[in-house]
Amino acid sequence: MTNQSCNDSNIAGVSFSLHPMSDNFIQIIEGALNEVDTSKVWMNTDDVTTTVRGKLIHVFDVTKAIFTHAAKTGEHIAFQATYSLGCPGDSSGDVYMSEDESPVNRDQIKNTKQPVAAKFSLYPLGGGNYMDIIYDQIEAMKEHVTVSSAHYSTHLNGEAISIFNGLEQVFQTTVEAGSSHTVMTVSISANSPSHK
């Protein structure tokens, strides 16, 4: 059995899947990946998901840009992701931790208008008052987008950039509040016929 002890790693990571509802799905996915600068993160794609690791700011920058570029095609895009930072943490990939704090994709996508619907669930592991932390962060999301309750998650409506920015802030705040291992699951849908 492997010893999974806590450490002070600040390596963030995400495992995500992008699902274009289109016969053109390969071109949409490859086009989004080609338009995004991934030079400040470690990234690997297998037959199920893509994993991105590095500083939290760059992990969110890359996933936000990939989703935004795919959604601008006008096709129905579904995005599923699990973000994580902390215990038991990463043991490799530190090479990207020396990168600066400047997101390389932000300027390219910052003015993108893309309405989306989303759901997220936040899991601050290793703390006794986790429900207080979760409720505080749900309230914080209201500064960015429309928030409503849903079974097992919180429902969000708004612009894609605002939702991603809010999710990043919520995640960072939870980490800074002392969560030794923070996990967040996210589902986002753009251009769905059911949104109309």
Rank of each mutant, 00 (worst) to 15 (best):
residue 1 M to R: 01
residue 1 M to L: 01
residue 2 T to R: 02
residue 3 N to D: 06
residue 4 Q to S: 03
residue 4 Q to R: 02
residue 6 C to G: 11
residue 7 N to D: 15
residue 8 D to I: 09
residue 8 D to A: 11
residue 14 V to A: 15
residue 15 S to P: 08
residue 15 S to Q: 12
residue 16 F to T: 11
residue 16 F to G: 11
residue 17 S to P: 00
residue 17 S to F: 04
residue 23 D to C: 05
residue 25 F to Q: 04
residue 27 Q to E: 14
residue 28 I to M: 03
residue 28 I to C: 02
residue 29 I to H: 03
residue 31 G to F: 00
residue 36 V to Q: 02
residue 36 V to W: 02
residue 38 T to A: 03
residue 39 S to A: 08
residue 39 S to G: 07
residue 40 K to A: 13
residue 43 M to R: 11
residue 44 N to G: 05
residue 44 N to F: 05
residue 45 T to G: 05
residue 47 D to L: 13
residue 51 T to H: 06
residue 51 T to C: 08
residue 52 V to G: 05
residue 52 V to Y: 05
residue 53 R to M: 09
residue 54 G to A: 05
residue 55 K to A: 06
residue 56 L to S: 13
residue 59 V to F: 11
residue 60 F to V: 12
residue 61 D to R: 09
residue 62 V to R: 06
residue 64 K to E: 10
residue 64 K to L: 10
residue 64 K to V: 00
residue 65 A to Y: 01
residue 65 A to T: 02
residue 66 I to Q: 03
residue 67 F to K: 04
residue 68 T to R: 01
residue 71 A to S: 07
residue 71 A to V: 06
residue 71 A to D: 00
residue 74 G to H: 04
residue 74 G to L: 01
residue 74 G to E: 05
residue 78 A to V: 12
residue 80 Q to S: 14
residue 81 A to C: 10
residue 82 T to A: 13
residue 83 Y to D: 07
residue 85 L to K: 09
residue 87 C to E: 02
residue 87 C to H: 01
residue 90 D to A: 15
residue 91 S to Q: 10
residue 91 S to D: 09
residue 91 S to E: 09
residue 91 S to I: 07
residue 93 G to K: 10
residue 94 D to G: 14
residue 95 V to G: 13
residue 97 M to T: 11
residue 97 M to L: 15
residue 98 S to C: 05
residue 100 D to W: 07
residue 100 D to F: 00
residue 100 D to K: 05
residue 101 E to A: 15
residue 105 N to L: 07
residue 105 N to C: 07
residue 107 D to V: 02
residue 109 I to V: 06
residue 110 K to N: 03
residue 112 T to P: 00
residue 113 K to I: 15
residue 114 Q to T: 05
residue 119 K to G: 14
residue 119 K to S: 14
residue 120 F to Q: 08
residue 121 S to W: 00
residue 125 L to S: 02
residue 127 G to K: 12
residue 128 G to Q: 12
residue 131 M to G: 00
residue 131 M to Y: 05
residue 132 D to N: 14
residue 132 D to I: 10
residue 139 E to I: 14
residue 140 A to K: 14
residue 141 M to H: 09
residue 142 K to H: 04
residue 143 E to N: 15
residue 145 V to D: 11
residue 152 Y to R: 10
residue 153 S to K: 14
residue 158 G to A: 06
residue 159 E to A: 00
residue 161 I to Q: 03
residue 162 S to A: 09
residue 163 I to D: 03
residue 163 I to Y: 07
residue 163 I to V: 15
residue 164 F to S: 04
residue 164 F to I: 03
residue 165 N to G: 03
residue 166 G to H: 11
residue 167 L to V: 09
residue 167 L to K: 10
residue 168 E to D: 01
residue 169 Q to E: 11
residue 170 V to P: 09
residue 172 Q to H: 10
residue 175 V to I: 12
residue 177 A to E: 09
residue 179 S to W: 01
residue 179 S to P: 00
residue 184 M to K: 06
residue 187 S to H: 04
residue 187 S to T: 12
residue 188 I to Q: 03
residue 191 N to H: 03
residue 193 P to E: 04
residue 193 P to G: 06
residue 195 H to V: 01
residue 196 K to G: 06
